[in-house]
Amino acid sequence: MSGVGRQYGVLAEFDTPADVMAAAEKVRDAGYTQWDVHTPFPIHGMDEAMGLKNSKVGWFTFCGGMTGFFGGNLMIWFMNSFDYGIVVGGKPLYSPMFAFPVSYELTILLSAFGSLFGMLFLNRLPRLHHPLLKNKRFAKVTHDKFYVVIETADPKYSEDETHALLEETGSSHLEVVKE
């Protein structure tokens, strides 16, 4: 466990969105999996350039929404009809009509929770530290620079080849990021 000084990955800096997009396509075509692109603002078409599939957050949203809808109905049926029946306005003890607005609100609430917590879970957030954050140069990612970072954890990673690939993409600056 050498800890400090272990390589996290290699960082390549670019000056324009078009350069980083072209670089992402090359890295994608080279078959890397453990890598990411960091930009000051969202770039349209980047997910395709990176070969990213549709996010899995939608499934969390869907499950949250379903839970909200059926949970809401179940709650209203249990409270007003099964456990302690109350007649209101001559209506049935349980009807999907009056249960709907509340269930619908719960659908929205729980699907929003599903989206938020699903996103946090899939991004492994919150976390206290990330190796890139102590890299001085990387701070410019919030200003005017664009970065491709390939992690050493990638099965295809090899110091020479990965460096060569990133140099080929026309990066203006290459740097090894320490853990």
Binding site: G89, G90, K91, M97, F98, F100, P101
Partner: peptide, 12 residues
């Protein structure tokens, strides 16, 4: 459409 139905159903 649900709102239209629901309001009419509820007011009866």
């Amino acid at each position: 459409h649900f709102s239209q139905y629901f309001l009419i159903w509820n007011a009866a």
